[in-house]
Each structure stands twice: as C-alpha cells, then as structure tokens.
Simulated scan of single mutants.
Amino acid sequence: MPDADLNLLNALDALLSEGNVAKAAERMGLSESAMSRTLARLREATGDQLLVRAGRGMVPTPHALALRERVRGLVHESHAVLQPADAAMDPRTLQRLFTIRANDGFIEAFAHVLVARIAKEAPGVRLRFAPKPDKDVRPLREGLIDLDVGVLGDSAGPEVRVQALYRDRFVGAVREGHPLLDEAAITPERYAACDHVVTSRHGRKEGPVDVALAALGLTRTVAVTVPSFGAALSIAAETDLVALIPASYFERLRARSTLRSFALPIAAQQITISQMWHPRMDRDPAHRWLRGVVLALCRTPAEDEVQPARDRQ
C-alpha cells in the first residue's frame, strides 16, 4: 500500500471548509493553479470529485460532506501531535475554524461579544455555532465539535473535561402592562393561573417548575411549546402568555423594551452553565486560548477548576 501524503489532509480541510479553490489557495498560501492541481490529486486519491461546479460556485459531493468533519478532526489532531505540548501560541497568527455547540440562549446572549473579541485578537479564527439538539457527548469524542456549552448531562462520559462558566436561573417574562404585574405580589397561585409558553427542543411541556408547583398543589396550563427562547419571548411580547427564560439571556437582550421579567414565586434551582471538551484537547495551545476567551467573557471566578465530568456530578 503506497504511503499517503499527509500534506493533502491540510489541503482537503481547506477545500472542504471554504468550498472554493481560490479561497482555499489563499488560506494555504498557494497559487490558485497549485491548489487546482492539489484538488486533482485529492480526487485521484479518494476516487471522488469532492467539489463539483454548480453555477458560478462549487458544491461538495455527498462523499465530501461525509469526510468534512473527520478531516477537520484529523488535521487538528496532527497539529497537536507535531508541536510541543506547552508551545507558545500567538492568536494573531492563528488560522483555524472552531465549532462550538450551544443552545440559542447562550448564542444570542454571548455570541456577539465572543465574535467581536476573537475578531480583535485573532482575525484568522472563524467560528461555527452548531445547534444543540441533545447532550450527547459523541460529537466531542469524534472531534465533530471543539467545545460544548451548556448544562452537564447525565450521559457525559467520565473523560469529558468540564469547567463552570456561570450560574444562571430562570425568570418569568411578560409583556409590559400584563395583568400579572397589576399587583405588587406575584404569588404561586397567580403565576399558575396564567397561560404559559415554554421552550423545549423535544416538545416536552413539563419541567422543574411544574414539579415545584405540584408540591404546592398547583398546575399551570402550557398553551404553546416552541423550540427557542427567542420564539417564546416573541409570543410573550404580543400576548398574555408567560414565558420562562434564563435570566442571563433576558438581561443581555434589554433591547426588548416591551417585556418585563420577574422572579419566579416558587423555589427554582440555579443551573450551572459549563464548557466541555475532550481531554485530547487539554494541551492544545489554540484550544486553551479559545477556552480562556470564553471563560473570561462569562466572568467565571478563577478558582473554578477543570474536572472530569464524573467529579462534577
């Protein structure tokens, strides 16, 4: 079996990430003709066209789509292997795409400040925010994502590294002038008597709030279930429905001047939002830099230590 040219991996990663020969050539520091020759070699090596013409642009083949995330993981792994574990890293020279998986609450509250910070410190870095349909850690293990941001799930493996970013809590949100705001005290009874809009990726209507209400002999009516906090707020802004929203999300979106938040009149546990990654990325300088930026933006105290998932449960 002939030896594979591992330099082709970097070129393949650039081509599949950019979807454009000229942009991939610029990213690799090559001429466009040299990158075209490299694409021809890759087609020969893989037995697939990889990128095909579609109008004025190019689109990946199904085989290329299947390879894209695997190739990116392999490139990152090879870079980590072929450098000193504690090598210094200048963010200004970093050329890398990071994929962060997070729910819409974190993305809408923090993504804009994260993007601005990275554009200033590391203009060659690009971010991809991936949806978070569940808490499966398989994408971390397989290198499909670089960071997973959210609440630690029960399915997290013992090897996953976890670092707390900030504490959060849920608050109620209603439109300005909502009847619930007419009186000084929002009691559990008045809260439960309202119709509610809840956020659930899987369409579930019940959660910890319902458990707390049930302990008081109360139930609430869930009139609408939506997949995102933004959709819940949009509905609450135009109706008498009450939304349940993370406080951090609401506070960072104060532009929604037609909405008011209030503390829940029931016992509600705080939640810890963490960033999680696979241990193979522990010593990678670029990944460490990214984690530091995310941590600084979320203002977690320095004494929060990184621990395996099993120690955080």
Rank of each mutant, 00 (worst) to 15 (best):
S200Q: 12
V162K: 01
E159S: 12
I107D: 02
V198P: 00
D168Y: 00
I245D: 00
H278D: 15
R128Q: 14
E206S: 10
G217N: 08
N20H: 13
P285S: 08
M276N: 10
L180R: 10
A11M: 10
R72Q: 09
L16G: 11
L297F: 04
K23Y: 02
E159C: 05
S257M: 09
T258Q: 15
M89P: 02
A243V: 12
M58Y: 08
I271Q: 11
A109C: 02
L15R: 08
R141T: 08
V52N: 07
E238F: 07
T199N: 05
T258D: 14
A87G: 11
A263H: 12
T46M: 11
T46A: 14
G292D: 14
L94E: 08
D210G: 06
Q307W: 07
L241E: 02
N20Y: 04
R256G: 04
A164Q: 06
A247K: 04
T272V: 15
V224H: 05
S33W: 07
R299C: 12
H178T: 05
H278R: 06
G19K: 01
G19N: 10
D195L: 10
R288P: 04
R280S: 15
A24F: 07
L295I: 13
H178V: 03
T199C: 14
P139R: 13
A309M: 04
E77W: 06
R204G: 12
L165K: 09
S248I: 06
R190E: 05
A25Y: 09
I145K: 09
V211M: 11
I266L: 06
A116L: 10
S248V: 04
V162M: 01
A263C: 12
W277A: 11
N10H: 12
L30I: 00
P2Y: 07
E77Q: 13
L180V: 15
R252F: 06
E183G: 06
L213G: 01
E44W: 01
L264F: 06
P265L: 09
K120F: 11
R126W: 04
E69R: 15
A40C: 08
N10R: 13
F106V: 15
Q269C: 07
R220K: 15
P139Y: 10
T225I: 14
P227E: 07
A302M: 11
A215S: 12
F106Q: 03
T225H: 00
T38G: 03
V209Q: 05
S248T: 14
Q307F: 06
R260M: 10
S155F: 01
D86Y: 09
G207S: 11
T272C: 06
E142T: 13
V151C: 06
L241G: 03
